[in-house]
Amino acid sequence: MMADTPIPTTKEAGLLGCRYCTRVWPSGTKTCGCCGSKLVSRDLQSLQKVWAWWLVALICYVPANLYPMLRTSTLGSVSQDTIVGGAITLAEHGSYFVAGVILLASVVIPILKFLAIAYLAISVARPSTAREGTRHMLFELVEYIGRWSMIDVFVVAILSSLVHLGNFASVEPGPASLTFALTVVFTMISAQSFDSRLIWDQQEFEKDTDRAH
């Protein structure tokens, strides 16, 4: 579509672009003269950072699923619910929609996010056939949706402070609430560390090979 009029990049023009304020500087400039951010043409350590945070997040995600998120005591009986267990309890009570929201926010989105970040990090490290635009959209989706996984942590916080009804019922947060919150935070940092400009560099490799032919 745009193949006949390739859009130049600041890197090709021998310049540096600021990722925070969009200003353009001569190459060799260390910090942006407008907003003061550090300038890098491509963040070459980006992938290492992405994988480091990704791994820490994955490690936290294991106890987040094994330990209880909530301890509910009603009239002397105590029940402990993990993320999946809590959703199943909700579904048994007929709240299919909320069970769906919880499963989506706490299970489906985190797992898809792990897969998407790994796919993006692998795809920029070797020749990829997937279209840049598609991969860029995937990246924006991961950045946009990732934060919403925090909803389960907030639900635990609300329930634990609200449900204090003496012996009748009370709710306390379980250890998984911490590890799950950490999972969300670390995947957010992992996605933020990814330099999305790397996705588009492969287009330039292709352009270069086209020129060589």
């Binding site: 859009i7 130049p8 990049t9 600041t10 890197k11 090709e12 023009a13 310049l15 672009g17 600021c18 990722r19 925070y20 969009t22 200003r23 353009v24 840049e132 860029h136 924006e140 999305s196 400009r197 996705i199 588009w200």
Partner: peptide, 10 residues
Amino acid sequence: LVACPSCDAL
């Protein structure tokens, strides 16, 4: 000039 912060287009 302006550089796209997401894809570096100039």
